[in-house]
Structure formats: structure tokens, C-alpha cells
């Protein structure tokens, strides 16, 4: 059956293209048009074999079109620039929150409300950092080959590693600061050391988040 041959030929053309909505749409469109053309040619009295050849040669070179579709999946420079700025803003706000957070305690003279506000500021900052790292656009491969995949993996790895160490670097000084603030203001030395255990938990949660993220990509 020539129609099956056409379908198989088109499926073959798309065999090494990563599936996406645009690619599926294009395939369906191409298939519908090719079959219409085939029916038309048969109706005009063309022998099936000849009609098949005519349809196939009429498709032409789709490689340019396909690489265009691949390229669409890549980031365009404006988007990269935008996300870079967004990322910088988020990190700056987070750092600002970390820096001003002790003020909540100092201004409120160590009241409970001040404490709550202090932790709230830090939590918001950490949330911003995590949100930033999770929504950061990744390096998108343009060719499906080993080198590109390796590079992508490398970038991901480097990115999440540097993010993790950055969070740790921020986390521990903050915990020490918080420890002294809480202890001095409340004089609760016997209990305030618990904050270090909270810190260990936080660190664990953060590394868990990163592991889940890495796992998602595989």
C-alpha cells in the first residue's frame, strides 16, 4: 500500500527529532497534505508507484525546517538577558533580607514579634534563593549528540553545585549570628544551641531539594 509507504517515509523523516508539540503538528500537517496529494494524483489517473514518487519528491528537504524547530527550543539572547537580570534581582533581594534581618531583633529589643520577623526575613530570603535556582533557565542542547548532552550535564552539575555551596556559605554564618542574638537578648543559653540542629536540618533539606532536582532531569 502506497499510503502506508508515505506514512512510513514521513515517520522516518522525523525519527531523529526530539518530540515536541511543534514537531508533532508539523508531522501531522505534512502527512495530511501528502495523502491529499496522493489521492489527487491517483484520481487524475496516475499509477500508484508514480504518484508515490511524486509525493515523496514533492516533500523536498525538510532538514532546514527541522533544525529550525530544534533551534526554537533554544534560548534566544533576549530571554537569556532577561533571566540574568531577574536572577540578579532575586539574589540581591535575598541578600538584602539576610543583612537587615538582625535589625528586626535589635529594633524590637528582642521581643517575640521581632524574633518571628527575623526568621520570617531569613526564610523569605532562602525561599527566594531556592526559587531563583529552580527557575533558572538551563543550557538547552541544540544538537542531540553525546558532546552536547555531556555539556548540558556538566552545566547542570556545576550550576547546582555552586548554588549549594552558596546556600551553605550563607546559611552557617546566619545561624551563628542568630545563635548569639537569641542568646544575648533572651539569655536562654541552655536552649538556644538548638538552632544549630535546626541548621543541620535545613542543610539536609537543601541538599535533598538539589538531589530531587537532579533526579528529575534524568
Amino acid at each position: 500500500m502506497m499510503k502506508e509507504k508515505i506514512t512510513a517515509h514521513i515517520a522516518n523523516l522525523f525519527s531523529d527529532v526530539p518530540a515536541s508539540r511543534q514537531v508533532n503538528d508539523l508531522r501531522e500537517e505534512l502527512l495530511a497534505n501528502s495523502l491529499s496529494k496522493y489521492d489527487d494524483l491517483i484520481e487524475q489517473g496516475m499509477p500508484p508507484e508514480e504518484a508515490y514518487k511524486s509525493v515523496i519528491s514533492g516533500i523536498g528537504d525538510v532538514s532546514g525546517l527541522l533544525s529550525q524547530l530544534r533551534a526554537q527550543k533554544m534560548m534566544d539572547p533576549i530571554l537569556i538577558e532577561k533571566s540574568r537580570i531577574r536572577s540578579a534581582v532575586l539574589v540581591s533581594i535575598a541578600v538584602l533580607l539576610f543583612i537587615i534581618s538582625p535589625l528586626a531583633v535589635i529594633i524590637s529589643d528582642g521581643s517575640k514579634l521581632g524574633m518571628i520577623f527575623f526568621f520570617f526575613l531569613i526564610a523569605t530570603g532562602v525561599a527566594l534563593l531556592i526559587f531563583n535556582s529552580m527557575t533558572k533557565p538551563r543550557y538547552v542542547k541544540d544538537e542531540d549528540n553525546f558532546v552536547e548532552e555531556f555539556r548540558e550535564w556538566q552545566v547542570e552539575n556545576r550550576q547546582s553545585k555552586s548554588m549549594r555551596s552558596a546556600i551553605s556559605a550563607i546559611l552557617w554564618p546566619l545561624i551563628v549570628v542568630a545563635y548569639f542574638i537569641i542568646s544575648f537578648f533572651f539569655g536562654q543559653w541552655h536552649i538556644s544551641w538548638l538552632i544549630f540542629i535546626v541548621g543541620v536540618c535545613l542543610e539536609g533539606i537543601i541538599s535533598l531539594i538539589f538531589q530531587i532536582r537532579m533526579g528529575d532531569k534524568k
Binding site: L30, S34, I59, G60, V62, G64, L65, Q68
Partner: peptide
């Protein structure tokens, strides 16, 4: 037109 040319134009 080749189909490929046509679809490029559509896109």
C-alpha cells in the same frame, strides 16, 4: 513549491 519550503514560509 516543495512542502518543506511551504511549511518554512507558514512558520
Amino acid at each position: 513549491l516543495k512542502e518543506a519550503t511551504l511549511y518554512s514560509a507558514f512558520r
